[in-house]
Design a binder for these strands. Structure first.
Length: 202
DNA sequence: ACCCAGGGTCATA
DNA sequence: TATGACCATGGG
């Protein structure tokens, strides 16, 4: 068993996931912050709220009233943090309009320097907003790997995936989306342990 | 009533 | 490097 065959199995099971739903790269950035530790359905509501107020731009969010912002993103939890961080990060994007064109590793470091953006969020932005090949590792990826006998921290797992897969942006996007779908259905559920992804060579 | 969700930061050892 | 506390709403 290798990662490509895992990918093929998951694609056969779930089909294409159509990630990341967004009209603009900046909407991906906003969604990446808002989706932290919450369900995507809650994020969709907040995105709609922001769009209705015409606030889904870097300039708009950078200048938005913080209390209004808190109300609009309340449904995503941690709403005070997220409102504050969203505003600060938007100000950075507003002052650096072409930041997403920065080469992969430099972009990643820049994003990581912003408060509210950790490894997963940075890589989500690099992959889904900037269309650059960085494999996103999330809690489901770690669980899935652990079930397959692979234990490692974020960087180790990312190196494993990036070293075992062709540097293909659409593949990275689809694979991560499929792993999340897999995790939502199996990891931590009653079916956990009956999953077909038992052993992997790497 | 309890558990967790498409995490991140900060303090502590 | 590695835990633990904290952030907080919403759906099961």
């Amino acid at each position: 068993m290798n990662l490509i065959s895992i990918y093929d199995q998951l694609l056969g099971l779930f089909g294409h996931r159509n990630w990341w739903p967004a009209e603009t790269p900046f909407e991906v950035v906003v969604g990446a912050i808002l989706t932290q530790q919450t369900k995507w359905e809650n994020v969709e509501k907040a995105i709609v709220n922001l769009k209705e107020k015409g606030l889904l731009t870097a300039d708009g969010l950078a200048e938005a009233d913080i209390e209004e912002l808190e109300g609009l993103v309340r449904c995503t939890g941690f709403y005070r943090q997220k409102a504050r961080r969203l505003k600060d990060i938007s100000r950075f994007f507003s002052m650096n309009p072409v930041i997403l064109e920065t080469p992969t590793y430099e972009l990643r470091d820049v994003l990581l320097s912003l408060k509210g953006i950790g490894h997963e969020t940075a890589d989500s932005i690099v992959l889904y907003a900037a269309d650059k090949p960085k494999f996103v590792i999330d809690a489901y990826t770690k669980k899935m790997c652990k079930c397959m006998g692979i234990d490692g921290d974020y960087t180790e797992l990312q190196s494993l995936f990036e070293g075992s897969l062709p540097k293909d942006v659409p593949l990275y996007k689809e694979f991560h989306a499929l792993i999340v779908e897999y995790g939502k259905r199996f990891c931590g559920k009653k079916m956990c342990g009956e999953c077909m992804l038992v052993k992997i060579d790497y």
